[in-house]
Simulated assay, not measured.
Amino acid sequence: MKQERALRTRQALIKSAATVFGRRGYAEATLNMISAGAGVTPGALHFHFENKAAVAAAVEAAAAGSLRTVAREVYARRTSALQALADSSLALAHALLSDVVARAGFQLGHEVLYPTVYDLREEWHAYVYRLLKEADAEDTLLPGLCRRHAAAMVVAATIGFELLGRDDPQWLSRRTLTGFWNVVLPCLADPEALRKLDL
Rank of each mutant, 00 (worst) to 15 (best):
residue 104 A to P: 07
residue 5 R to E: 04
residue 192 E to A: 13
residue 120 L to H: 08
residue 137 A to P: 01
residue 140 T to G: 11
residue 137 A to F: 02
residue 171 W to H: 03
residue 124 W to D: 08
residue 26 Y to Q: 09
residue 13 L to H: 05
residue 91 A to C: 07
residue 146 C to N: 15
residue 154 V to Q: 09
residue 183 V to K: 09
residue 173 S to Y: 02
residue 95 A to L: 00
residue 165 G to I: 00
residue 165 G to S: 02
residue 3 Q to T: 10
residue 155 V to G: 04
residue 45 L to D: 01
residue 161 F to Y: 09
residue 100 V to D: 06
residue 17 A to T: 13
residue 132 L to K: 12
residue 88 S to E: 03
residue 166 R to C: 13
residue 20 V to F: 05
residue 193 A to M: 14
residue 66 S to T: 15
residue 190 D to K: 13
residue 10 R to A: 13
residue 11 Q to P: 12
residue 8 R to P: 09
residue 136 D to I: 02
residue 42 P to K: 03
residue 3 Q to L: 13
residue 178 T to S: 08
residue 18 A to K: 01
residue 43 G to S: 09
residue 141 L to A: 05
residue 179 G to Q: 12
residue 67 L to C: 12
residue 46 H to I: 02
residue 1 M to F: 08
residue 85 L to H: 13
residue 29 A to V: 03
residue 52 K to H: 07
residue 185 L to H: 04
residue 160 G to C: 08
residue 141 L to H: 05
residue 165 G to N: 01
residue 93 A to T: 00
residue 62 A to L: 06
residue 89 S to H: 14
residue 98 S to R: 10
residue 139 D to M: 06
residue 36 A to S: 03
residue 30 T to P: 07
residue 129 Y to C: 09
residue 17 A to E: 11
residue 144 G to Y: 12
residue 77 R to F: 14
residue 82 L to V: 08
residue 141 L to G: 05
residue 191 P to R: 05
residue 198 D to W: 09
residue 165 G to Y: 00
